[in-house]
Amino acid sequence: MKIQDKTITRGFMLSGLMNLTVLIFSRFFTNSTIPEFDPVVMSNFGLLMIVIWGLAYMAIAYNYDKVPWLIGIFAIEKSIYGYIWINWMLNNNVSEVYEKDTMAGIFYSIYGINDLLFCLFFLLIFLKTINSTSQK
């Protein structure tokens, strides 16, 4: 399967924009429910770092082929968030989050799915760029 450069660039931009939705779900870091249910990973600092990661994805969108190892780091980062989400879902009740705040409930319901999907995207692009770099 050959993914076109334009599609890959859009994927990087979309991944960044998805991270920026943290600003909406957290109401620009004023929603205390998100950090309440995971005070380590989803503290306001943690949410800010999610925004920073999103900006990093967008920053390389047009030059991703020049930084294959950074894309590999993105895949690792997304896999960690995916793992944390799975663990959180297995040990918590998301309906309790919904009871306190709908936006926080939606956030906890979807963030891990998003991270796992973009982990696969970054992994595919990492492998593509490594293969094309090694053939030069």
Rank of each mutant, 00 (worst) to 15 (best):
K2R: 14
D5T: 06
K6E: 13
K6Q: 12
K6D: 12
T7G: 11
I8A: 14
I8P: 08
I8Y: 10
R10L: 13
R10P: 01
G11H: 14
G11S: 14
G11P: 04
F12G: 08
M13S: 09
M13F: 14
S15Q: 07
L17I: 10
M18D: 08
M18S: 15
L20S: 10
L20P: 05
L20A: 15
T21G: 02
T21K: 01
V22R: 01
L23S: 06
L23F: 09
I24Y: 11
S26Y: 00
F28S: 00
F29M: 01
T30G: 00
T30P: 00
T30F: 00
N31A: 06
N31R: 03
N31V: 01
S32V: 02
T33F: 01
T33A: 04
T33R: 02
I34F: 02
I34R: 02
P35K: 03
P35L: 05
P39I: 03
V40D: 10
V41G: 05
N44T: 00
F45L: 15
F45E: 05
L47C: 04
L48C: 03
L48R: 00
I50T: 04
V51A: 05
I52L: 14
I52P: 02
W53F: 13
W53A: 13
G54H: 10
A56D: 04
M58C: 11
M58A: 08
A59W: 14
A61H: 02
Y62M: 13
N63I: 01
N63A: 08
Y64M: 09
D65F: 10
K66V: 05
K66I: 03
W69D: 04
W69Q: 08
W69V: 07
L70Y: 09
L70R: 06
G72C: 10
G72R: 07
A75R: 15
E77S: 14
K78L: 15
Y81K: 05
Y81I: 01
G82M: 07
G82A: 04
Y83G: 09
Y83I: 04
I84S: 07
W85G: 05
W85I: 02
W88R: 08
W88M: 07
L90E: 11
L90F: 09
N91M: 11
N93R: 14
E96C: 03
E96D: 11
E96F: 05
Y98Q: 09
E99S: 07
E99I: 00
K100V: 01
K100L: 08
D101Y: 05
T102Q: 07
M103T: 02
G105N: 11
I106P: 03
I106L: 08
Y108C: 10
Y108D: 02
S109P: 09
I110G: 08
I113N: 06
L116T: 03
L116I: 13
L117Q: 10
F118W: 14
F118H: 05
F118D: 04
C119D: 06
L120Y: 11
F121T: 01
F122A: 15
F122E: 12
L123E: 04
L124I: 06
L124Y: 07
I125D: 09
F126A: 06
L127Y: 11
L127H: 07
L127Q: 15
K128Y: 13
T129A: 14
T129L: 10
I130K: 13
N131F: 13
N131C: 12
S132W: 08
S132M: 11
T133G: 08
T133Y: 15
T133D: 14
Q135L: 13
Q135H: 08
